[in-house]
């Protein structure tokens, strides 16, 4: 996606304009972070959960050739009709777990979009005309489960709690079916902690 393409809003459905994310017919979601944070898994879990909600879903990813470190991103299109073009033409919901991802992708977020970032890695987020939430996900995960690695699942819970784009029930089923065996309870706790976050408390602008 280049700057020029970000402005086209090619696939946006006119009737979606200005509506809350949960009511839209076509939604483009990006998770950005660095390799090892579980960013691609977040996209896959959201995609599984959204198909459980009977949506048409396409999930793609982009990553560097290295196994760890480097950039990593996971894109999900959630739609009420079959999806043709499989990649994003703009971003309605951006979730950034690294400062680099926030810097790199905020320019593509559409107006009336939502931007959620980890305030533990990014003190002052780029100013954009989207609802912006800053939550110290890694810190909250450590408090809730004792493991910072559950931050990605906690973040997913927060994404669903703050935006309502899919049902919490579908998210829970998807999380339980996708996380490694033996970690279900811990991840469930992380997800629930994320779900119960109060939007007003964490809203930046």
């Amino acid at each position: 996606m280049t700057d020029a393409q970000a402005q086209t809003d090619g696939m946006v459905i006119a009737s979606d304009a200005g509506k809350p994310l949960a009511e839209r017919h076509f939604l483009e979601v990006r998770f950005g972070g660095s390799g090892g944070q579980g960013v691609i898994l977040m996209g896959v879990i959201l995609a599984v959960a959204a198909t459980r909600d009977h949506r048409y879903v396409v999930q793609t990813q982009s990553y560097g050739p290295e196994a760890r470190g480097g950039y990593s991103r996971s894109d999900v299109i959630i739609a009420r009709n079959p999806v043709d073009y499989p990649q994003l033409t703009g971003i309605d919901l951006l979730v950034a777990l690294s400062a680099e991802a926030a810097q790199k992708y905020t320019g593509f977020v559409r107006s009336h979009g939502v931007f959620i970032f980890d305030s533990g890695v990014l003190a002052t987020p780029p100013r954009i005309t989207a609802d912006t939430y800053g939550v110290p996900f890694a810190k909250l995960a450590l408090e809730a489960t004792g493991r910072a690695q559950t931050a990605n699942i906690l973040t997913l819970g927060a994404v669903v709690g703050l935006t309502g784009i899919i049902s919490p029930d579908s998210l829970e089923k998807a999380v339980l079916s996708m996380v490694p065996k033996g970690t279900e309870e811990m991840n469930q706790a992380a997800m629930r902690r994320g779900l119960e976050l109060d939007g007003e408390e964490w809203r930046v602008r």
């Binding site: 949506r55 048409y56 999930q59 499989p86």
Partner: peptide
């Protein structure tokens, strides 16, 4: 690569 790696309903 896109068709091979993408997940879809």
């Amino acid at each position: 690569e896109v068709v091979g790696h993408m997940r879809e309903s």
